[in-house]
């Protein structure tokens, strides 16, 4: 896959990818907490399934008792029992 100009610049300067690009950054603690930075929006939210829009693929989180502990413009904090995280190409 051919890399974009922006991507090449960030790699050249060793910048964190989520800063210049809109790449989502996921931080997972065990199976009970997930932070998604640089998300584009919530597509679907139920207590067992969440879909988040990002610049690239759609992130789908499955589990039980999922809650959105905090929602801000740039990140979303999911808590609950997470069973899987999928990247969907729609």
């Amino acid at each position: 896959m051919k890399k974009s100009k922006k991507e090449r610049v960030t790699e050249l300067l060793d910048l964190p990818k989520e800063v210049l690009l809109d790449t989502p950054k996921l931080t997972v603690y065990s199976d009970n907490q997930l932070t998604v930075e640089n998300y584009g929006g919530i597509l679907e939210y139920t207590d067992c399934y969440i879909r988040l829009k990002t610049a690239g693929k759609t992130i789908a989180v499955s589990g039980r008792g999922l809650e959105l502990r905090a929602i801000t413009d740039v990140d979303v904090l999911v808590e609950g029992s997470i069973s899987r995280i999928d990247y969907l190409t729609v």
């Binding site: 929006g41 939210y45 139920t46 207590d47 999922l66 809650e67 959105l68 502990r69 905090a70 929602i71 801000t72 413009d73 979303v76």
Partner: peptide
């Protein structure tokens, strides 16, 4: 989120 209104403990 877009308008900067902070929401927390969002639950179905």
């Amino acid at each position: 989120a877009r308008r900067g209104i902070y929401l927390w403990n969002v639950r179905r």
